[in-house]
């Protein structure tokens, strides 16, 4: 049984990471993280224009977490997350056009305009939402894992939650059941330091990655701003789970640059704190500098920037041109209908 441990040392990881990594893989990380960032920036802009309404929780700053984990998951694995979910959908290879069109509440959105920012799903990509109730996604994720074991399909359920959710009672309930029945579940705590406006030190006793210790669930704290550290930790955790050992907890130490949602001015933290994260720890700049150190031409990366810019532009246009759902859609999809 692996026990809870602190962040593995940076040197150790760098040694593993850069030697095992091709330039192509690093470029892919750069691409995937930049796609998320640009998508979220565009969402913020459309929100500002009144084209997206309600709640809109952005992932900017946290890109390394979902990108690193997704890079080592297998096609049969399933994913469930919270309401800060656009990035997880993009990482699952869902179509940015369909996601953006859902944000604008249009018929070509993933939920035909009925779900919005927090509620999108894709069975084809094994993405199970998008949940608006803090902590509920963790129970659903445990259930996805239960089904993997029941069907014996070698899948692992990856259940993302925030630091705030980790204090919900049902999370403890699920740690217990997942450990009791050796369910293939990777619990990922995206610790971005604030549950809405409450610093994690004011809400949570002890260390979140050690919350599984009493149940015998190994836990690990990882530098969630470093996509290579995330990837390595996720690979190890998934190997452990897939070998039939039961669940694993990864606490990703990350940071969101934006407020909790669009209407949060984030006055509970200092500008210095935010800018030091942006300037010194940014996951995208981090990968970019590794690539430049490996003698990749800046122009190569500009090509990627350009490609992403055009994907995002296309998705924003699509999301504005797609019509609103027809009025009769109000009544459909309440039930799987009987004839």
């Amino acid at each position: 049984m692996v026990s809870a441990k602190e962040t593995s040392s940076k040197e150790e990881r760098n040694e593993n990471s850069t030697t095992n990594l091709s330039i192509d893989k690093l470029k892919k990380f750069y691409h995937d993280m930049l796609l998320i960032r640009r998508f979220e920036e565009k969402a913020a802009q459309l929100y500002g224009m009144g084209l997206i309404g309600g709640f809109c929780h952005l992932y900017i700053g946290q890109e390394a977490v979902v990108t690193g984990i997704t890079s080592v998951q297998k096609h049969q694995d399933t994913v469930v997350t919270t309401y800060r979910d656009h990035a997880h959908m993009l990482a699952c290879d869902m179509d940015p056009k369909g996601i953006m069109a859902e944000l604008t509440g249009r018929i070509d959105g993933y939920s035909r305009g009925k779900g919005g920012s927090m509620h999108m799903f894709s069975l084809e990509k094994n993405f199970f939402g998008g949940h608006g109730i803090v902590g509920a996604g963790t129970s659903i994720g445990t259930g996805l894992g239960f089904a993997h074991k029941y069907k014996n399909d070698d899948g692992v359920a990856i259940a993302y939650m925030g630091d705030g959710a980790s204090n919900q009672g049902q999370v403890a309930e699920c740690y217990n059941m997942a450990a009791l029945w050796d369910l293939p579940v990777l619990f990922v705590i995206e610790n971005n330091k604030y549950g809405m406006g409450t610093d994690v030190s004011r809400s949570s006793a002890g260390q979140l990655y050690r919350r599984g210790e009493g149940y015998g669930i190994p836990g690990e704290q990882v530098d969630g701003m470093d996509v290579l550290a995330v990837r390595d930790a996720a690979q190890q955790a998934l190997n452990y789970i897939r070998s039939g050992n039961g669940p694993y907890i990864l606490e990703m130490m990350t940071y969101r640059y934006r407020g909790h949602s669009m209407s949060d001015p984030a006055k509970y933290r200092t500008k210095e704190e935010v800018s030091s994260m942006k300037d010194e720890r940014d996951p995208i700049i981090n990968v970019k500098s590794i690539l430049l150190e490996m003698d990749v031409e800046e122009n190569d990366l500009k090509e990627i920037d350009k490609e992403i810019k055009s994907i995002i532009k296309e998705s924003a246009t699509f999301a504005q041109e797609s019509p609103e759902p027809p009025l009769e859609d109000l009544w459909t999809d309440v039930l799987v209908e009987s004839k």
């Binding site: 994720g141 993997h148 069907k151």
Partner: peptide
């Protein structure tokens, strides 16, 4: 047999239903 943990096992059952059971 589940532990006495209604919130957790109800949510877990929902997740399993979404994933084919």
């Amino acid at each position: 047999d589940t532990p006495i943990t209604e919130h957790g096992f109800a949510g877990m059952a929902v997740g399993s239903a979404m994933n084919g059971l």
